[in-house]
Design a protein around this nucleic acid. Structure first.
Lengths: 206, 206
DNA sequence: CGAAATATTGACCAACAGGTCAGGATCAGG
DNA sequence: CCTGATCCTGACCTGTTGGTCAATATTTCG
């Protein structure tokens, strides 16, 4: 029974360097896409040599996979937090606000996923059609219930969710465009917060 | 005075092959991003040999630039078509509908620009802060006028435009995600058309 | 037709990028 | 403080990719 096959717990150095590498990889992959990124860039950003990076991860692909899968749960978590018992409008507004804040605080993560999905999501297809789809269907049926009971205006729940994703992540993914068009002296996220609160208020009030 | 420095008009073959290459490049670049694309892939998609592609364009970069700049006007045209004399709500709804249709009919173009902006728009920064910004400001002040005269609800005009871009292009840029989440038996663009018409109706009616 | 202009290609090159490896440095813990 | 495990690196290998070039094929047009 005492199978000695268990993987050894990571040493302190392993733990630190793996996270340093993933942090660097997040910066590089989100800015350059998978193919655009090089191991050298990641190594440089991590302050390590290339062979040393490859000592901790088997391959570039391995880094990328670890990064994506490690971030996915955190990224989708707010969707899980929607409370069927809560006040419908407030629940949606909270979700919008949280997603917008995530775009502001974690733009690299947003761009990482955007890049991946844009390229056809070669690594996420199963998850998209599986786990994610179930989560979205779950949230959508909560919305549908609220609509049925007259607590929300009649809108397509799935597209309501898409709209929240599109509107909030837009500010991270297209940040250069937003800033270039607005010019100096703007706080895009603050303005977006007001705009989106008003939008979903008008859209969803029965 | 008869400067013979003018560039020779392109032959029929030049004209055809250049456009064949750009068409192929659009497919490849939009699916792979700039760095992910290879000249071989473009050549293959165009049905030409790699050296032959480089006979018509000086470099990979040259292909990419020609493609982007050639498409930009077409892509931004609908924004110019907003008529200050028109019926405010109808003008916005028309713009939304046109942009959504463009996402459906020209998803490659949408993804091409999305890729470029995501990576920081190294080639478009001047245009974004210059020509595009002026166009957006122009449209925004039309909207502002309509709001002032009570024909539209009070919303931030710039973010109104961003919202239209985000919502419509989302269906092209994140198409795999949308389809994966919706599953079979859906026509995302048709559903989105209904959803967005309702959204902007509720948002903008005074 | 025939010659000049244009179009096409196979072979090649240099730079780059992912990945390997043998050996040396460093560290943990008995 | 010694030894085995862990960590790190320079040098190297290989496949890919952007790009060149001389030579050949094709088109154009007088």
């Amino acid at each position: 029974m005492s199978e000695e096959d268990e993987q050894p717990r990571p040493t302190r150095i392993q733990q630190k360097n793996r996270s340093v590498i993933l942090e660097a990889a997040l910066t590089v992959f989100s800015a350059q896409g998978f193919r655009g990124a090089t191991i050298d860039q990641i190594a440089e950003a991590a302050g390590l040599s290339k062979p040393n990076v490859l000592y901790y991860f088997a391959s570039k692909d391995d880094i990328y996979r670890s990064l994506l899968t490690g971030l996915l749960d955190m990224w989708l978590d707010p969707l899980r937090q929607i409370d069927p018992q809560g006040q419908p409008l407030a629940e949606v507004q909270r979700y919008v606000a949280v997603k917008l804040q995530m775009s502001r605080d974690y733009p690299r993560e947003s761009r990482l996923f955007a890049n991946e999905v844009l390229q056809g999501a070669p690594l996420l297809t199963e998850i998209l059609g599986g786990q994610l789809r179930e989560m979205v269907d779950g949230a959508a049926s909560i919305f549908a219930g609220w609509i049925e009971s007259g607590q929300l205006a009649r809108v397509d729940p799935h597209h309501l969710i898409f709209s929240i994703w599109a509107l909030t992540q837009h500010y991270a993914d297209f940040e250069v465009q937003v800033r270039a068009v607005l010019g100096e002296g703007h706080d895009p996220y603050a303005e977006a917060g007001i705009f989106l609160a008003g939008l979903y208020d008008r859209l969803l009030k029965p």
